[in-house]
Design a protein around this nucleic acid. Structure first.
Lengths: 195, 195
DNA sequence: TTAAGGAGAGTGAACGATCATTCTTCTTTT
DNA sequence: AAAAGAAGAATGATCGTTCACTCTCCTTAA
């Protein structure tokens, strides 16, 4: 890649990071393009040379949130104990999506997904990938005899993913919750659900 | 109450219902006061005789969402089997908060709660009430020997509430999910979690 | 070695539209 | 007659976006 193109992609990334900080503060629609530009240190006209519109910025952030999860899938699959893999995956997800720096944009994404077709597609893609991984790991666990034979993989996987989503909600809103306590509680809940 | 005051309260309710429909369509911040007024069939100037500001409308809707849940707590407590009570409570919550007519505003509320102090208070009040009820019912179930003695009520209650929140997320976004299938799955998940 | 040329980066004012809110005016009810 | 209800135009601010323009490099030609 030519260095010019490289610098361009880097700048795109700088814009996305600044925009994410703004969106965390005020949400997608209450954040103005001017605010994002100020956060980057850039004029509004120039921002439009990197993104065709404000919603393109939003979509890029949604896709980025999904992509950041992909490496975790490999990590979970590599674990020799599939249930431990699921636990690790869920812990990573919750922590990352609630992270005040890199994440905490998830609540805004799911809210927007209820009404914006393109954002919904992004969410459903993420959701599908995540549930596929969990399903696979549950199937392995079942084959290894780590789960009761009557265990329903479909219900189990959607339940675990829902648990993650729910914990993200709580953790994003309630600032009183400590991460360590949350970690312990999540492990307990997963074990309980897979008992 | 004087009939004039009564009509006034009724009109307030009409405004709230119309505003909720608008907010479901476009979210709090992408909905204009003009749009709400058109939905009610009312001029913008007149709306401000019933609410001092747009955010007052939002806060009233948040509080309404919480209040609509309160009767369900009594219902759950009256059930002779506390676990069945929890299941019924959770089913009601999920169905009501995802209802395209009366609910489906929940995702917007939780997203707004991450940044708006007053909305956050509303959410935390709801969350506290709900978890208190679930905790109580779990304690009864534990005393009745319906749960393992090592069952952790604190983790269990927060897990069940998180499960509800997560299911609302999925159900609000993914239009392909049928309510009957969701109902069956939720019952299975609760039983799994309390096994 | 240097001057000319050109492409991309960046600026900030200006655009029309829309925002939440207020004000004035008219109508209905008590 | 007084008060409350309702309407809708007017307010200034802000919205996302565009435009005309300058500046900075890098390549090419003399």
């Amino acid at each position: 890649m030519t260095p010019a193109k490289e610098r361009r992609l880097e700048k795109r990334q700088v814009i996305l990071e600044a925009a994410r900080r703004c969106f965390v503060r005020h949400g997608f629609h209450a954040t103005g393009v001017a605010e994002i530009c100020q956060e980057v240190g850039m004029s509004p006209g120039n921002l439009y040379r990197y993104f065709p519109s404000k919603s393109a910025v939003i979509l890029a952030i949604v896709d980025e949130a999904r992509l950041q999860m992909v490496p975790l899938y490999e990590l979970a699959r590599e674990d020799e104990n599939p249930i431990a893999g699921i636990q690790a995956l869920m812990l990573h997800c919750v922590r990352h999506l609630c992270d005040p720096v890199h994440g905490r944009i998830w609540m805004e994404i799911v809210a927007e997904a209820t009404r914006n077709e393109e954002v919904r597609e992004g969410y459903l893609r993420f959701d599908g990938e995540m549930r596929t991984v969990v399903r696979e790991l549950l199937a392995v666990a079942l084959a290894q005899g780590r789960l009761s034979e009557s265990f329903n993989i479909e219900y189990g996987s959607s339940g675990l993913v829902a648990l993650v989503d729910g914990l993200i909600v709580r953790l994003s809103i309630d600032g009183r919750i400590e991460w360590e306590a949350c970690r312990e509680a999540l492990i307990w809940k997963v074990q309980q659900m897979l008992s």
